[in-house]
Amino acid sequence: MKKLIHLTINDQSFEVAVEPNQTLVDLLRYQLGLTGTKKGCEMGDCGSCTVILDGKAVNSCLVLAIQADGRNIQTIEGLETAEGLHPVQEAFVEKGAIQCGFCSSGMILSAKNLLDQTPNPSDTQIRRALSGNLCRCTGYQKIIEAVQSAKTI
C-alpha cells in the first residue's frame, strides 16, 4: 500500500506517495524526473546513485524512499545556483574530469561532501573519499586533480 511522505530535495519540499519497496533512487529518477542521479549496479558497489542525505553521502539504491520521509536530500541538480555551476562542477569541467559522465554526479557529490567537512583535504583523504565511486572510463587521475583544484577555490 502506498504511503504519503514529505521530504526536502534541493531545498524544495515534496509530498509524494511511495510504495514500501521503492528505492530512493527510483523515486528521484522515475517519479520526480531527477535523472541526474544515475543507476549502475543497484547493489551499493559503484556509487553512481550517490546523493547527500542529511549531510552524508550515501548510495540511494540501498535506501528505501519511505526511509527518506522527513529528511533532507541533495542531488546533483541542486548544486548549480544563479551564479553558475558549483566550484566542484566547474573544476571537473576545467580539468577534463568528465568522459562519458555516468559517474560524474556521484563523484561530484562525494567530493562536495568531503570538502564541506574537510575544506583542505590531503591527496589520501581525497582518494579515500572517492573510493566508493567507480569510473568505468577510468579517468581517476583527472578526477583527483579536479578535486585538488576545487579545494583551493
Binding site: 551499493g44 556509487g47 550517490t50 552524508k56 553521502a57 548510495n59 573510493s131 565511486n133
Partner: peptide, 9 residues
C-alpha cells in the same frame, strides 16, 4: 569497512 558511502549507512 566498505566505502565512505556504505560507512555512512
Amino acid at each position: 569497512l566498505g566505502t565512505p558511502l556504505i560507512r555512512n549507512l
